[in-house]
Nucleic acid binder design. Structure first.
Length: 301
DNA sequence: CGTATGCAAATAAGG
DNA sequence: CCCTTATTTGCATAC
């Protein structure tokens, strides 16, 4: 697999600030390779610096003291220098050429129920990906490993560009196509989202990032500009009701949780909110109420 | 100041 | 068009 042994990192000034080997950089443990486990951790324990020489990230996803990383006999590493090659619309991003080892090697034979089982909510990518199961593929054929890899990478590259989650969100807003907030970026990076969402978000972020890096390379000042995208309808901005409005709405709800279209229109007019917003408020309110009471049934105080 | 997160708008999909 | 149910996503604010 050519071209995936390392990646060049540049900062917002277009300077190369380092390279990123995909394979672990063994801490000089030249000792005879432990013959036991041939599992290689996908961890990349190293520091990343930005233009100011600040540590912008340390990569290490292992909670345990770094186990000895097994190194392949030969490491044809060292891209020496060279410039960053134009980013091509490669449909597939760097694939992990390394086998991922299960993160938690159970050790204590005694009482230990580290099962982070979440009852019955839709699982997030991070939850799925950390299951001992390790199928890597979602029931729907989504490659969780690939997404996990991209998420990790996205963060590194974002930071290398010197951008915050907020800035990315804003940049995305100026774009055609889907819009996402800082929250969304955060959740994506943390994989605190469902595989379905991640799958949907990935191409958007990928495209944006590639363009951002491109302009950055060309010494662009404004790497916050547009990115071509498909003309898609943007999600309506979330409206926040004033406490007074909430109060009023609740009052109406108590009198009648299922107002007719006519009534909704009147209420909306009265409170000076968009009719649709009011209608949805009632829908959500009913839903919340229903869910709440369901839960209480199983809650025995 | 940037990132994480709880609660709940907004949206998707089937009637 | 509106409802319900399940989910996605963002505002506001905690960290």
């Amino acid at each position: 697999m050519p071209g995936i042994s390392s990646q060049i990192l540049t900062n917002a000034q277009g300077q190369v600030i380092g390279t990123l080997p995909w394979v672990v950089n063994s801490a000089s443990v030249a000792a005879p390779a432990p013959a036991q486990s041939l599992q290689v951790q996908a961890v990349t324990p190293q520091l990343l610096l930005n233009a100011q020489g600040q540590v912008i990230a340390t990569l290490a996803s292992s909670p345990l003291p770094p186990p000895v990383a097994v190194r392949k006999p030969s490491t044809p590493e060292s891209p020496a220098k060279s410039e960053v090659q134009p980013i091509q619309p490669t449909p597939t991003v760097p694939q992990p050429a390394v086998v991922i080892a299960s993160p938690a090697p159970a050790a204590k034979p005694s009482a230990s129920a580290p099962i982070p089982i979440t009852c019955s909510e839709t699982p997030t990518v991070s939850q799925l990906v950390s299951k001992p199961h390790t199928p890597s593929l979602d029931e729907d054929g989504i490659n969780l490993e690939e997404i996990r890899e991209f998420a990790k990478n996205f963060k590194i590259r974002r930071l290398s560009l010197g951008l915050t989650q907020t800035q990315v969100g804003q940049a995305l807003t100026a774009t055609e196509g889907p819009v996402y907030s800082q929250s969304a970026i955060c959740r994506f990076e943390k994989l605190d989202i469902t595989p379905k969402s991640a799958q949907k978000l990935k191409p958007v972020l990928e495209k944006w990032l590639n363009e951002a890096e491109l302009r950055n390379q060309e010494g662009q000042q404004n790497l916050m500009e547009f990115v071509g995208g498909e003309p898609s309808k943007k999600r309506k901005r979330r409206t926040s009701f004033t406490p007074q409005a909430i109060e009023a709405l609740n009052a109406y709800f108590e009198k009648n949780p299922l107002p007719t279209g006519q009534e909704i229109t009147e209420i909306a007019k009265e409170l000076n909110y968009d009719r649709e917003v009011v209608r949805v408020w009632f829908c959500n309110r009913r839903q919340t109420l229903k869910n709440t009471s369901k839960l209480n049934v199983f809650q025995i105080p």
